[in-house]
Design a protein around this nucleic acid. Structure first.
Length: 254
DNA sequence: CTGGGGACGGGGCCC
DNA sequence: GGGGCCCCGTCCCCA
């Protein structure tokens, strides 16, 4: 099945509900309550104004002591951040997957606030550092864009106005908001089911597929998901005891 | 143990 | 060059 079975074209030609959402999108402005932007319609329908603290991001890339080409003039509502030079001492590990959401409009945790970025293009003086690094993450990033993604994964600037859960990227927040609204824009063409997440629709479509995509190398079984195959392997695949199923000879359907 | 849904993140591509 | 979007994958939970 070609990958284009998904609603890619649909999204490309029409911005789906995003456009409807965008009608209500109103970035969190100073002095405005994010919750005030939320409008829940009747019977679960809703139009949610997406609110994420984009205003926080520019500060993440501000470079101390010089106007950085990365920085924008946006001011953080939290005030200036500590942009101390990079240091390996006294660092605290930032837990990007915090399970304790904080109210909308707040930084997830002061400990997660970036205190320094190392950018080879912005260093004064230039350093031989080969990669873009973030103080609170040991992983190197190959580009400034990757670095920004890394920082977002730590700072989680996109905050759900309903529950306060924070996300690294706006569309993750959109998907999350669907869990509140019950919106399921991704419909299965083969049945009546609909999904809030495109990946979940993709997984569901495997249930309609005659040829499962993931084959066990030790037994004739095949599975619609990699995770199922993985669990199958972990459970101890024993070829002799598996129920006899016809081995699909077709290669992965993509 | 398997099948399936829900939720979400990473990396890369596209505009 | 940057942000949005998509694909892929993982984890968890439940039947």
């Amino acid at each position: 099945m070609p990958r284009s079975f998904l609603v890619k074209q649909y999204f490309r030609s029409k911005k789906y509900n995003y456009s409807e959402l965008e009608d209500d999108i109103d970035l969190a402005l100073p002095g405005r309550s994010p919750l005030a932007e939320l409008q829940i319609g009747p019977n679960g329908g809703s139009s949610v104004g997406l609110v994420w603290n984009l205003s926080l991001l520019p500060d993440l890339f501000a470079w101390p002591s010089s106007p950085s080409p990365c920085a924008s003039p946006c001011a953080s509502p939290m005030g200036p951040l500590d942009l101390s030079p990079i240091s390996s001492t006294g660092e605290e590990e930032c837990t990007s997957g915090s399970s304790s959401p904080e109210p909308a409009g707040h930084y997830r945790s002061p400990r997660c606030a970036p205190t320094a970025l190392s950018c080879p293009q912005l260093s004064h003086p230039p350093t031989p550092q080969p990669a873009f690094c973030y103080k609170h993450c040991p992983r190197e990033n190959s580009s400034l864009g990757a670095l920004k993604t890394r920082v977002r994964s730590h700072t989680l600037p996109c905050v759900c106005p309903l529950c306060g859960k924070a996300f690294s990227r706006p569309w993750l927040l959109r998907g999350h908001i669907r869990t509140h609204t019950g919106e399921r824009p991704f419909s299965c063409p083969h049945c009546e089911r609909a999904f809030a997440d495109r990946s979940n629709l993709r997984a569901h479509l495997q249930t309609h597929a005659e040829v499962k995509r993931y084959h066990c190398t030790a037994c004739p079984r095949s599975f619609g998901r990699m995770s199922l195959l993985h669990k199958h392997s972990l459970a101890g695949c024993s070829p002799g005891t598996q129920p006899p199923k016809p081995h699909p000879t077709a290669s992965p359907s993509t």
